[in-house]
């Protein structure tokens, strides 16, 4: 069971602006899906190590050689609001 308040809080954490109708729908659906997931909590897995990756991964290093960076212009071209070599964003801080 996920309440409307919890759902709205989650939406804020996920930076999703949702309509009241969306919050109502998601609250019901998330509850049903999490009920299904609850089957996992009945398994005794105390001694089982977790698997994060199917293939055993190790840190991969490459030679520390500088290469030309050529994408800057292209990346700025596809940005919603470029200015010089920066991305513009709306106000971050308010005057207190």
């Amino acid at each position: 069971m996920i309440t409307l308040e919890q759902t709205a809080h989650l939406a804020h954490l996920a930076r999703l602006e949702l309509t009241p109708a969306e919050i109502a729908e998601l609250s019901g659906q998330l509850g049903a899906i999490l009920d299904y997931m609850a089957q996992l909590q009945n398994l005794d897995l105390a001694d089982v190590p977790p698997t994060a990756h199917a293939v055993n991964t190790a840190n991969v290093l490459r030679p520390d050689q500088p290469v030309p960076s050529t994408l800057t212009e292209k990346l700025l071209e596809i940005a919603p609001a470029p200015e010089d070599h920066f991305f513009q964003v709306p106000q971050i801080l308010r005057e207190g």
Binding site: H12, A14, R15, L16, E17, L18, L75, I78, A79, P80, A81, F87, V89, P90, Q91, I92, R94
Partner: peptide
């Protein structure tokens, strides 16, 4: 997040811009 590429829905402050962009 509407900053570097893809859709951006304008808003007065950053957090609202994130939320609206992603919500829509």
């Amino acid at each position: 997040d509407g900053v570097r590429y893809g859709l951006r829905v304008a808003a007065e402050d950053l957090v609202t811009m994130y939320g609206r962009t992603r919500g829509q």
